[in-house]
Design a protein around this nucleic acid. Sequence first.
DNA 1: CTGAAAGCGCTTACAG
DNA 2: CTGAAAGCGCTTACAG
Lengths: 337, 337
Amino acid sequence: MRATIKDVARRAGVSPKTVSDVMNLTSPVTPPVRARVEEAIATLGYVPNLSARGLRNGRTGLIALALPDLSTWYSAEMAHHFVQAAGRRGLSVQIEETGISGDRERQLVSRTRAHLIDGLILNPVILDSVPELSGSALPPTLFIGEVAQSVADHVWIDNVGASREIVQHLIELGHGRIAALGVMCTETSRLRLVGYHEALERAGIGRDPVLEIANDVWRPEGGYAAITAFLQSQPLPDAIYCFTDSMAFGVISALRSLGYQVPEDVSVVGYDNCADGQFTSPPLTTIDFDKAAYADIALRLLTRRIGQPDRPVEVVTVPHRLTVRSSSRSRSNNPGP
Amino acid sequence: MRATIKDVARRAGVSPKTVSDVMNLTSPVTPPVRARVEEAIATLGYVPNLSARGLRNGRTGLIALALPDLSTWYSAEMAHHFVQAAGRRGLSVQIEETGISGDRERQLVSRTRAHLIDGLILNPVILDSVPELSGSALPPTLFIGEVAQSVADHVWIDNVGASREIVQHLIELGHGRIAALGVMCTETSRLRLVGYHEALERAGIGRDPVLEIANDVWRPEGGYAAITAFLQSQPLPDAIYCFTDSMAFGVISALRSLGYQVPEDVSVVGYDNCADGQFTSPPLTTIDFDKAAYADIALRLLTRRIGQPDRPVEVVTVPHRLTVRSSSRSRSNNPGP
DNA sequence: CTGAAAGCGCTTACAG
DNA sequence: CTGAAAGCGCTTACAG
């Protein structure tokens, strides 16, 4: 059996309260007593039972992070930064994967409440029915990513602006037939498409629905399959704006196996600036943002929320910037406008 | 305030025990009573407090998964499979990142014990001092990956055999100057190097220490930097065996930016068969194993261990297979022996 | 500065 | 089939 606080108290010849005081610095303890307690803790190998502490304090030091799919570049990097940021605050992270099912997300939010967590960071994909989250006793919740809601704290990127900038970049390079790849029924996709439309419109380029390529598998295989299918019936666009770096990775792979050169024949750009995007051949032009800062801000908001459940809702937009690498370049035979 | 079991009991006009019985199927409850209880649970939005349940039962339904670095292809994929496998068993997963520091790993194992977890899955990198783990009240622990120990359950791959096979494959393709990339002071690196040596020896090829390229950053940037530095003083090898797919990804990127063609000028192979390895240009030859099965076996062993702490230690070797893709091919001007 | 007591919200023998 | 009571291991007022 694991030693309890009583065992430690007995061995040190003090009461459980004093042991608790030594561990939690709740009230001062004289050095000799402290030493005796610490010795007892060490020899018994005592470790506090966090379930008991959690029951008593109403806090466990555990938060949940719900991401669509851990095996994705984006989620993996974000998970890394969130675990790091949480660690700095003495919190542990329970990971949940929501897939792309809205059902699972909603279920998760309520089931998670059942769990031992102090708070929830949720990166929704579907979750249109966010308002219903406001009901009853939700744990402190923070959204990351794209979701139209105003009931909980929220950290995100200006997707429309970022999208517009990267498409503008392609237009400035002289590209006119620009495809958007990754169109699906999520808020993220919708906003990135809006930015794409705005950039075209500002440049006076008409939309061509054919160039809005549907794909709901936001991983390399999705990009690979979507562009391969597209090219069976359509000519090569001037440029392809992929809604994530990982799709761009798959698109580059597909293009190469079809015999096209990137960027000579077609420019390809992504979104997220995942670390791996530097190593695609060629390295990816993409939208960058500071992921460590993003995670840190999210954790700061969440811990505040945990401390003060009734504070007003906050929304933070993390700055982004266009990062140009060699996967995009001007049309050789048709230099920019 | 969140409703408690007492609130539900009062509203349903029963005792807390009956509510517990309804939730846990502990003992039969008549349909009408069950209906009343369920109605009360629904209208109060009752969710059991898992800290309390954990304190009472000695189980929280939480396990910890400690991986070196989540932002790595390998760790991210494994995390995904472990979260899925745990979910199937009704368990949640707390993620810890150990980095490559042995200190942190040891600290983690004991600190984690303090946490609310029922068990620990640990993928050690350094941890030479595993024996000390056997002391005192460790939580049920299972090792995954390469570690020389016999105090805890263990799931792994035959690294020496796998390594030998992939190097043999390169030798059969006619390559003689085969580099090994990723040499560092870990058990994983050591075993993969042993397999490399065995393959060379069996083929009667002498070792060349120059071809054993050190690199302790097992990510694309590590592979990129290591091969770039190597090629400043050495001629291009016939083939490069990278100890992970992600290093191979960086190596391919570096080779391409130096003007070399893979596999025309040099074959490059990896290890782990991460999903992304299919989309490198060219797709990677690698060592494959069933990651979902791997996670499932690990969880089966761990849940058994949690149930029966004193059962004998088990070690499971998960089968692997060589997966040949286009990143490796025979030397054009020097066909195989 | 330290101790004895109560209680966090569950579940499990134990009665009825 | 249901209820009253005890207890899991902590911490926090409350006394001394």
